[in-house]
Nucleic acid binder design. Structure first.
Lengths: 165, 165
DNA sequence: GGAATAATTGTATACTTATAAAAATATTAT
DNA sequence: ATAATATTTTTATAAGTATACAATTATTCC
């Protein structure tokens, strides 16, 4: 089945990025994205992903994914490459938000990495702002994500699959 | 009530030391030790303890306690007002701009506050960059302002009305 | 291809958990 | 102590989740 994989990926995404309080709720979100499945199927999916429903500070409940190890295995077995830290450069992760890029680094590595990025991306980058473990990169408005992703994969010496669009 | 504390302690003990698959099961164990309570009470106890039911490798489910920190606080503060650090001393204002949030703090408070924000908003926040009296927060693109406002009201211990949309 | 086998899903339902409302128990103030 | 207030618990039930079994869909092996 082809859709199962996509559905699982989507579930992981949804759970990562929003507060989902029940399987019905998840079913709704999924169907909005074209995956019509019943609660029973989600119960199985969530069990397979070792997902848990945790009480929140606000008195509600939300599903959360398990700490990466087991999850990574699950994802791997579904054919997707897990992101891994690059300890040589201090790079940990890269995310887009609008024309911004947020790069997380090991503590203390932000400044050094930001310098390298500045040197390499004069054309595409308006500026970088390093904290201690985070770099904010402001892209020029006319630089596409794909272009930027290629550039950063190159600068950081990582595979483009490690970049989260 | 005197028994509540003892019951909670016992629940923690039981969950730590054996596999408990349902609240009914826990109720049985407790009653063997002299604590006769209904499932409803346990539901509340477990919610209060932030306990979660996790799918095991063997295809079963078991309750587990959360990582220690929050747990100790909960137990210690049983009955009293919920423990919440008062960050209001450092916090001055919060403004949105696109998927960014700019928080002004009293001088010197930005780094500390940013750290707390990082700890609390792993899901919703891509990263934070503290200056000395300003924190830049980059939200994930799919986090709405309302959700973010709720989150920050909670993190900062302020009323949501203090947040400027 | 088509039969045999395996994986996935839906249906229906049992099982489990959460919660409103009422009752019981404790605490506080007078 | 007693009324007033607050907390905790049970009861009853709603809400949510898991699973047996049947149906469907995919895969494998002639």
């Amino acid at each position: 089945m082809k859709n199962r994989r996509k559905r699982i990926d989507l579930i992981i995404d949804l759970i990562r990025n929003q507060c989902i309080g029940s399987q019905e709720e998840l079913a709704d979100l999924l169907s909005q994205k074209g995956h019509k499945v019943t609660q029973a199927t989600l119960s199985r999916d969530l069990k397979m992903l070792r997902t848990t429903k945790v009480p929140t500070d606000r008195g509600t409940y939300m599903y959360v994914l398990p700490e990466s190890d087991s999850l990574k295995d699950k994802i791997l077995s579904l054919g997707q490459a897990p992101p891994r830290a690059n300890y040589q450069s201090g790079f940990l992760s890269l995310h887009f938000s609008g024309h911004l890029i947020v790069i997380k680094t090991r503590i203390g590595y932000a400044a050094g990495l930001a310098y390298d990025i500045d040197m390499r991306g004069k054309e595409e980058i308006l500026g970088t702002i390093p904290g201690s473990d985070t770099i904010l990169v402001v892209l020029r408005e006319d630089v596409s994500r794909n272009k930027a992703a290629e550039l950063f994969a190159d600068i950081l010496g990582i595979d483009i699959s490690q970049i989260s669009f």
